[in-house]
């Protein structure tokens, strides 16, 4: 992929720095993260080292619109091994959150938000499930936790 460093966006960099985790600033591009990644062997385009570099270059549009920021499996192995202490999965989360703010939201993520804000659960406790729980001697549980709906927020 061709990268135009002229797309540098200083406000994006400041925003990324302002997120909870500033560890990415220490990245020196050794690539231990990519070498440890369980996804890269299956989806060669996914490359955590490259994503951190793109973000560090302030390439806002390229980074936030990339489908690859959504393909980290959150196994946390790269973060354990990074010699510079970069919490790469946390960087992925920060990039995903900023992408959402910019309106880049993959369909499956919209569905997750809808389920949590409307039903309060990813998997509903419907009548069928409730009946099966009773048959198995399992206690009934809150079908639609109200605090989950409210805390999810209703943003589209």
């Amino acid at each position: 992929m061709f990268v135009d460093v002229g797309e540098f966006d200083a406000r994006f960099l400041r925003k990324l720095k302002g997120e909870f985790d500033e560890s990415h600033l220490a990245c020196f591009q050794c690539g231990v993260c990519s070498a440890s990644c369980p996804v890269i062997g299956i989806e060669a385009g996914f490359n955590p080292r490259r994503l951190v570099k793109m973000a560090r270059l302030g390439l806002k549009r390229l980074t936030l619109s990339s489908e690859y920021i959504w393909l980290c499996s959150m196994c946390f192995l790269c973060g354990e091994r990074c010699p510079q202490g970069v919490r790469i999965p946390e960087v992925m989360t920060a990039l995903r959150n900023l992408a959402v703010e910019e309106g880049y939201i993959p369909e499956p993520m919209k569905r997750i938000r809808r389920l949590l804000s409307e039903a309060g659960r990813l998997y509903p406790i419907d009548d069928f499930t409730a009946e099966e729980r009773t048959d198995r001697g399992l206690p009934q549980i809150e079908a639609e936790p109200g605090f989950v709906k409210r805390l999810t927020g209703a943003k589209p």
Binding site: W70, N97, V100, M109, L116, E142, P145, V148
Partner: peptide, 26 residues
């Protein structure tokens, strides 16, 4: 003991980590 817990916040983290943390905190 069964308490009225809800989602741990993990599925919401990619969308909004502050709200995800608020869910865990609750």
């Amino acid at each position: 003991i069964d308490l009225p817990f809800g989602c741990c916040g993990f599925p919401l983290e990619p969308l909004d980590r502050v709200r995800a943390l608020a869910m865990a905190a609750q």
